[in-house]
Design a protein around this nucleic acid. Structure first.
Length: 416
RNA sequence: GUGAGCGUAGCUCAGUUGGUUAGAGCACCAGGUUGUGGCCCUGGGGGUCGUGGGUUCAAAUCCCAUCGCUCACCCCA
């Protein structure tokens, strides 16, 4: 049997309604903040991600779906959206049309990792990018939007974590300080962290090894080494969040795995989804556009994992979707009236009612059971004595009331 | 890439030390008397016990391999 590829999942009809519901919430919140949708291709030239996300990152180093197309161009299935959005922004000279662009997306992403709870190889994200302004109001707005979406989805067990990484010079300086601090203890670090010491020392803060965390106890914190501008902007972000009553925690250890971040970074974690607990992550990336050979364009954005959010919603039973209802089920009695039934259904469907009937010539009882299973509000009976005089019976399935009407009345019938 | 656990009907699972035609619940289909649902009752279809090999008179049950799934590490949404 051919099965879906490891790490991919079919979304079957019985679960599609919650996806649609989530997407409708996402779109309406983005609309209220005046964000416009952007759709970019599923794949890009590999170098976009290599340069945008950073050669040293795990995403680029080992998780991308990369292949050569027939023209021998290296192609990669998008592992995240920011690089693509910035590419489109530059390619279409969007900066020249207006100074600030507020964009959102809902799209599948691809990363070749070992699947586990809340982690797939093809997964889906929604997210936003605001390009063209370095206002910290936009940083706060990003957090505000996801938080609002998660809240509307009924999630409660959430924690907003924010941090500031400062500008690159500050960060480089701080790295030196941290390196000096850790050097004497280097041999006591875990193997992974010793590697990070050389490649990306900030990441040591992410270590889940307890002894590593012990060694970091009195480490100098980046947050105390920020430049004035970064510090002020961070204060503004915090003030806005407080004003709109979004609880948050400053997590000076929050270092995100994409190279392009500057200043604000944030994450919202759920206590209800297992070990991959980040529902969303994001931050500011003021230097990315230049890295991609565009003009200097400050930007800030976030991405949220739809599967993880739905997992949290399920575990918190955070929302209910009303059952699908059918308006009419047409049952035939006795004789085969398929064209007549088809025609009647067609008339009702033209008026936008949802209508179903039996295709398999089954017994009346079987048709009734089907009508019941489909949650049909009304059943229309075709056939029998009354049909000879141009009448059909119509039954309200909830009250069980039944009356006869002329067939022609189906053209004007109302059910409310 | 590393580690652990699990693979019996569409789904959730029973099947205690190897022994007769492998079971249940749910789901599905048909029926419960002339043309009507939800509850209930009766019957039915559906499994080469993940796959391949081995041990044995005999294997879903023991051994080996292989594939798949799940969870965790790593990393991230």
């Amino acid at each position: 049997m051919i099965k879906a590829v490891t790490g991919t999942k079919d979304i079957l009809p019985n679960e599609i309604s919650k996806w649609n519901y989530l997407e409708s919430v996402v779109r309406s919140v983005f609309k209220s903040f005046n964000y416009s949708e952007i759709r970019t291709p599923i794949f890009e030239e590999t170098s976009l991600f290599a340069r945008g996300i950073g050669e040293e990152t795990d995403i680029v180093g080992k998780e991308m779906y990369t292949f050569l197309d027939k023209g021998q161009t290296s192609i990669t299935l998008k592992p995240e959206m920011t690089a693509s959005v910035v590419r489109a922004y530059i390619e279409h000279s969007m900066a020249s049309k207006q100074p600030l662009h507020k964009l959102y997306y809902i799209s599948p992403m691809f990363r070749q990792e070992r699947p586990q709870a809340g982690r797939l190889r093809q997964f889906h994200q929604f997210g936003a990018e605001a390009l063209g302004s370095d206002s910290p109001m936009l940083d706060a707005e990003m957090i505000h939007m996801v938080y609002e979406i998660l809240k509307r989805l009924g999630l409660k067990d959430l924690m907003v974590k924010i941090n500031s990484l400062g500008i690159p010079e500050v960060r480089e300086n701080y790295k030196k300080v941290l390196r000096e601090f850790l050097l004497p203890k280097k041999n006591l670090l875990s193997e992974d962290s010793r590697k990070r010491f050389d490649t990306n020392i900030l990441r040591i803060f992410d270590s889940k090894v307890e002894s590593d965390q012990d060694l970091l106890k009195n480490a100098p914190m980046l947050i105390n080494h920020l430049d004035e501008k970064s510090k002020n902007d961070f204060e503004i972000v915090k003030k806005i969040l407080t004003t709109v009553k979004i609880p948050f925690e400053v997590d000076s250890k929050l270092v995100r795995g994409l190279d392009y971040y500057t200043k604000t970074t944030f994450e919202i974690v759920s206590g209800k989804v297992g070990s991959q607990n980040a529902l969303c992550g994001g931050g500011r990336y003021d230097l990315l556009a230049e890295q991609l050979e565009g003009k200097h364009t400050p930007g800030v954005g976030f991405a949220a994992g739809i599967e993880r959010i739905l997992l949290a919603c399920e575990n918190e039973k955070s929302f209910n979707i009303p059952e699908e209802k059918l308006d009419f089920y047409i049952v035939t009695i006795g004789e085969n009236l398929s064209e007549k039934v088809y025609e009647a259904a067609s008339i009702l469907r033209q008026r936008n009612f949802s209508v179903e009937f039996d295709y398999q010539n089954r017994s009346t009882k079987a048709q009734m059971r089907e009508a019941n299973k489909l949650n049909s509000r009304f059943v229309i009976f075709f056939g029998g004595d009354e049909y000879l005089s141009g009448m059909v019976s119509i039954k309200n399935m909830q009250s069980s009331e039944q009356r006869q009407i002329p067939i022609s009345e189906l053209q004007t019938i109302n059910i409310d």
